[in-house]
Amino acid sequence: MNASRKGSSKLETVPVTLTVNGETKRLEVLPWTILLDLLRDHLKLSGTKKGCDHGQCGACTVLVDGRRLNSCMAFAVMKDGAQITTVEGLARNGDLHPLQQAFIDHDAFQCGYCTPGQICSGVGLIEEGRAHTRDEIREYMSGNICRCGAYTNIVDAIEQVIGADAEAGR
């Protein structure tokens, strides 16, 4: 909030507090720092990937306050106070998130570059609770592009977790 008004040659940072994967981080960031770059370059959480860098591929998807967002299309300074979950924060006590396990079970990736974004997006989709059919899963995963074409297996993996949740009454 104390960024320089104009004409100052000194780069003024802005204090930002983020909770990333459960850990509170007090940071000083330049206003134009993109959330994705903050995660990867400043916090060394390189699981989140930079694909197109223009909100078109979904590789950078993270969960911000529980909702999936493209981290390449967000200034870190605007997320002050937010809870952020990246692919590194999905496992619990060493156990993979059920969707991570399902991706392995179904061979839902080839090169793996889109996978962290696919998994974070899939976790967001499952939380939203709107997808019940394969068509709905496909539509609500349309913000994540996989150039290897692992789509069929990605839908299988998500369907497995949604089915298990439904069976368990979650």
Binding site: T61, R67, R68, L69, M73, S121, G124, S142, G143, N144
Partner: peptide
Amino acid sequence: GASPQLRNA
């Protein structure tokens, strides 16, 4: 329009 991620923002 857009994608779930973009519609969230």
